[in-house]
Write a protein that binds this DNA or RNA. Structure first.
Lengths: 318, 318
DNA sequence: TCAATAGTGTCTTTTAGACACTATAGG
DNA sequence: CCTATAGTGTCTAAAAGACACTATTGA
């Protein structure tokens, strides 16, 4: 139910501030790839903004903001995403992730945030929004690394070089992605840490994306309208952080009914046989599913299929 | 992010009332089973309360209520469930489902509701809560039926007889479960309809439950601490509304690592060979998963895995 | 005896995964 | 020629599903 009228002996309706937060994921070339490394090695990036005001001023956070008085939840998420990326009709996929609203998650008072997950093909470098000092795409791996490790030596961005030269956003000393760099602190906290409970939200979003592309064609949201099987495979490999056999992948993906529709055209390549171009098909669920390479019998780590969201527990606390 | 401080040129923080709603599912014998039908045919039931005050006075709704000023979301859901069922330490499973907060879903103003999904073994008949005229378990099928059909002739409760004799809650003329009965109307609306957007929430909850038990051991939440493979199979059959081959089911469920732990004991039966008793094992994800009998290649109906959760789209509008 | 449920085994089909081999581009 | 990517075929193992058969109870 939604609430009770005044005569009901319920706890008084707590009035809370309502916000949306976005876990916007995209694939971009790993910046700062050392010479001699394979170029164009896509990595998973998330959109972050640097907070201009307290609390957590100077810290990086997921983009988001308050929901307008007459604004729908999804509308608010769409608006925030458009504001931050400068893109009005966003391609890709947007779905509700979970709601984080336990008391204490925001020092200013009770703020309930409905988090959304957005998957999009390579978006432009973000435009500084009105509510943030700056914003940028940050490699997810550098944020989820337990504590500065898990970053493959040399394949991840070295300190201060996550942004390709000329990207327009100067590297900042507060860079959150500098996993290998010295850890600076702002009012006693690890400055690499995200504001509020946003690291937890990010984790949930990434896990949701990982399971989502198993059972749905959502992986195509990371691709342009027309794409090759090889591109799609690189999406899966990047999001899952695995290697997949190109031959078996090709067979699976092309035999899943309604997943891909051939365009008849073919892509030009730098070297190698030209590949067929496909569009996303009408399927909403994949059959058979594209299951992640299975770690053996023992429990795989999460708690729930989130049903419809497939597996993946949805926490409700920061 | 969660919000911006006052100096930010964001839309002003809309203050909203925060509520939780519960989709509490359990398995109970179909009431009103005509003589001659197989008894003890479990069916999926959802807990509903009858609203005492406007709006939607007299209509049935999901149990729920406002979140206290210093109360966590999950805490509020747990409290509401305990109040409505009279059970303090609830067995079973509780997870966040989705949040419904679009303007207009509540005629009194902006009310944002975080819905939770609860799965529990046969709970007692509900105790009338302080905020509802009455509450009861209602067969899900009668609520989700397109418009009075989809109810297998003779196997569903006939008008006014959903409650087993002596259940303590007299059948009311407003009974929402009377799918086959005449449709009465209150202020112009089909009285069988649930209040607010609760039918949509119920649909989402049922679909989440259906996919949840595919990838997680959540089906055991419908069982007592010790149960037989046959009982577990009946859970799957009821939730999925399918028949499953007992022999293949037995093999699958006992070979999924960590799903079931044998107790060594055996159950006594009325007729038939005694069955081994199991407890729920430590697994959090099933491998291999218990996939629903697959409707052929065409898309299976939802939009997303949610969720590892697997599949299942999470809408954010009523 | 029979009916009913529990549990095992066997066979076929589908799918996953390893991997050989051919096709078509650029250098 | 080479290398690199695309795409097909073939084999094996795992899993799903159909179903025969045995086991153990109550009536």
């Amino acid at each position: 139910m939604s609430s009770e009228p005044s005569p009901a002996p319920e706890p008084p309706p707590a009035l809370v501030a309502l916000a949306v937060d976005l876990v916007a994921l995209t694939l971009r070339p790993a910046a700062g790839t050392p010479a001699g490394e394979p170029v164009d090695q896509d990595t998973l990036h998330v959109l972050l903004v640097q907070r201009a005001y307290p609390p957590f001023a100077g810290r990086w956070a997921l983009p988001g903001g308050f929901v307008g008085p007459d604004e729908g939840l999804r509308d608010a998420a769409t608006r925030e995403l458009a504001e931050e990326t400068g893109v009005r009709r966003l391609p890709g996929h947007l779905e509700q992730l979970a709601t984080y609203g336990d008391p204490g998650r925001d020092p200013r008072g009770r703020v309930v945030s409905v988090a959304f997950l957005a998957l999009a093909p390579g978006l432009p470098d973000p435009v500084a929004g009105s509510d943030a000092a700056s914003s940028r795409w940050v490699p997810v791996r550098s944020l989820l690394a337990p504590s500065g490790d898990r970053v493959p030596l040399g394949s991840e961005a070295p300190p201060g070089s996550e942004v390709p030269a000329g990207a327009g956003v100067p590297a900042r000393s507060e860079d959150p992605a500098t996993a290998a760099g010295p850890i600076r602190r702002v009012d006693g906290a690890d400055e690499r840490a995200l504001a509020f409970d946003h690291l937890a939200i990010l984790r949930d979003g990434v896990e949701r994306a990982r399971s989502k592309i198993e059972y749905s064609p959502a992986a195509t949201a990371f691709c342009p309208p027309e794409f090759t099987v090889g591109q799609l495979r690189r999406v899966y490999e990047t999001v899952w952080d695995t290697r997949l056999d190109p031959r078996n992948f090709h067979r699976k993906v092309t035999s899943a009914a309604g997943f891909l529709v051939p365009t008849g055209r073919t892509s030009r390549r730098d070297g190698g046989r030209p590949a067929e171009l496909f569009r996303r098909g009408p399927a909403t669920l994949l059959h058979p599913a594209m299951l992640r390479p299975t770690a053996p019998p023992p429990a795989r780590g999460q708690d729930g299929a989130g049903g419809a969201g497939g597996p993946g527990k949805i926490p409700d606390s920061p």
